[in-house]
Design a protein around this nucleic acid. Structure first.
Lengths: 139, 139
DNA sequence: GCTTGACTTAGAGTTACTCTAATCATATAT
DNA sequence: ATATATGATTAGAGTAACTCTAAGTCAAGC
């Protein structure tokens, strides 16, 4: 049984966010102790992990909520849920290539700065030069 | 020379967002035609690409603005800018592993649904089962 | 008995869009 | 020449998802 604070550390979500999510009903298995404090058992932790992954992949809170509600309706919503997850998997795949492009950009930029600081090329601070490397790739 | 609309398509940013960014001074080289319409030359496109990559990697608008302003101050801010980019590269690296974890999650979930629908395992719709796969890995 | 600390709530504030409405300039159709 | 359509402009309202603050409750330690 975990408190909000413990879960916050465990899942790297802010305590605020965890309260916010639970208030919205995204963790249906949530229980409270006699003082009304939120308590997370295994099940609730699992819900939260799922929510974190769905949200992290760009799903809106509303959409996550709908998915959770589908789960609670049982077997008859299986295919519907399957489609949601499949689509989300596609989105993630796109995100992976985007993040990789950003990584490339940063890597090029780092090299560019290092070259300048080693006096291999000039820093004329011309913004037009600012990302020549990427420009070639974008073409 | 590109219009807002053309740039929007080219960089996959909404027209609203492009106007928003330019209004905040994130594209210092921006020019206007005689009707006050925004026009993007190569340089401005490059700025925008840079801004997109910095924002996309989680930098706040405020931080991007500060970086742009550093660029405009020329060579004396080289090292400072270098450190900003280095840090951002670190952040991107963390994001890559996060996105990969999300991808794993979705992949496992997809398989889980397929197994259920092929009657290999049961859908008892128990939220505790909802992401057993990931739980093992998180431990 | 008092302080500390971890929790509670309602609600205000923030960021980064996102959208709407009203307006204006050019380009084409009648 | 006038009407309409297109494509921009602005100020400002609206939204999503946090993020934070203030005021309060409760149990444990000194």
């Amino acid at each position: 049984m975990y408190s909000v604070k413990q879960i916050s550390k465990k899942l790297n979500l802010s305590e605020h966010t965890i309260r916010y999510y639970t208030d919205l009903g995204l963790v249906p298995s949530l229980i409270r102790d006699k003082n009304g404090h939120r308590l997370f058992d295994e099940q609730s932790v699992n819900w939260l992990i799922g929510i974190k992954n769905l949200r992290g992949s760009g799903m809106s809170i509303q959409a996550v909520k709908e998915y959770v509600d589908l789960c609670l309706q049982g077997e008859k919503t299986l295919e519907q849920r399957y489609r949601v997850i499949l689509q989300q998997k596609n989105i993630i795949e796109k995100q992976m290539t985007e993040v990789q492009a950003q990584y490339q950009y940063m890597t090029n930029k780092v090299k560019w700065y290092e070259d300048i600081m080693n006096h291999k090329i000039e820093d004329n601070s011309n913004p037009g030069n600012w990302n020549l490397e990427i420009k070639k790739e974008e073409k």
